[in-house]
């Protein structure tokens, strides 16, 4: 099995706080982490490798410091890591990002499976996975909460709003996993040593993976951010006083008025 796991370094949005006075985002002191569901993807890939042999290759696109994210997954057990880092890649939307990752994957050679996290916590788009699958012309299965390899196919339990379905896709294929899929392992001492003592992260600039200049970065992105703003604060709430029964009656009245029952 040759498994590719694209990952993203994201700000830990858990730490993101809002300045109560200005209503803007405080980004200082916010750690960069590996996107949580990407860790589930790494875990899924490592479990498959342990069972079926092969290798797990982590791939990321981002600024030079995104190498830290790749080191972390190497410490968890990934065999190799590649970072696509080039100023020309800046400003990429999901399509331009998926383009670069797919070009790099093509450059890396044949693969059996690509496992991604369902979505990243900074953007929540869930688009890069399917867009890579389209670039690479391989089947995709998204929202996986369980996956297994049976002969030449990947069998995935796919989460739906009202149940689940089991989908079988011929490999090579791309799967996006949810946090329910597994519990990511922690980096081990041996893994950390490997991540730090060797130059494990290979850095590629756009020409290293044959990216066409007009398809990358801002120029290659069909969508642009026009503006960002903080959502307006809600009207102040109301305190309900009295006995539990009074409170319950008050609440029920409101629920009825708002047609919530």
């Amino acid at each position: 099995m040759r498994i590719i796991v694209p990952i993203k370094q994201v700000p830990n949005t858990n730490d993101v706080k809002i300045d109560p006075k200005t209503g803007t985002l405080i980004r200082e002191g916010v750690d960069s982490i590996v996107n949580p569901e990407d860790l589930n993807a790494i875990e899924a890939a490592l479990e498959l490798r342990e069972r079926l042999g092969g290798e797990v290759i982590a791939l990321s696109m981002g600024p030079p410091q995104a190498a830290d994210a790749l080191k972390e997954v190497v410490a968890m057990g990934a065999d190799e890591a590649y970072l696509l880092t080039d100023r020309a890649l800046a400003g990429a939307d999901t399509l331009a990002t998926a383009y670069c990752l797919s070009r790099a994957i093509t450059k890396l050679g044949d693969f059996d499976l690509i496992v991604c996290g369902r979505q990243a916590i900074d953007g929540d788009t869930a688009q890069v996975g399917p867009q890579m699958a389209e670039f690479l012309k391989v089947p995709q299965v998204t929202y996986a909460c369980k996956l297994d390899v049976v002969e030449d196919s990947v069998v995935v339990e796919r989460h739906l709003e009202d149940g689940f379905e089991t989908v079988k896709a011929r490999m090579p294929a791309l799967v996006t996993v949810m946090r329910e899929a597994n519990r990511p392992r922690y980096p081990s001492m041996a893994g950390i040593r490997r991540a730090c003592t060797e130059d494990v992260v290979h850095r590629w600039v756009a020409t290293d993976f044959d990216a066409e200049p007009w398809r990358i970065g801002f120029d290659g992105s069909p969508t642009w951010v026009k503006r960002t703003f903080t959502p307006p604060p809600k009207a102040p709430g109301k305190r309900l006083e009295g006995t539990p029964r009074d409170v319950a009656k008050d609440l029920l009245k409101t629920f009825t008025e708002k047609n919530l029952l």
């Binding site: 080191k71 972390e72 922690y186 980096p187 001492m189 950390i192 040593r193 730090c196």
Partner: peptide, 15 residues
């Protein structure tokens, strides 16, 4: 701290 020390600190904190 060295990279290695930071990673160990982070791994220990996380666990």
């Amino acid at each position: 701290l060295t990279n290695e020390q930071k990673m160990i600190q982070e791994a220990a904190r996380d666990f």
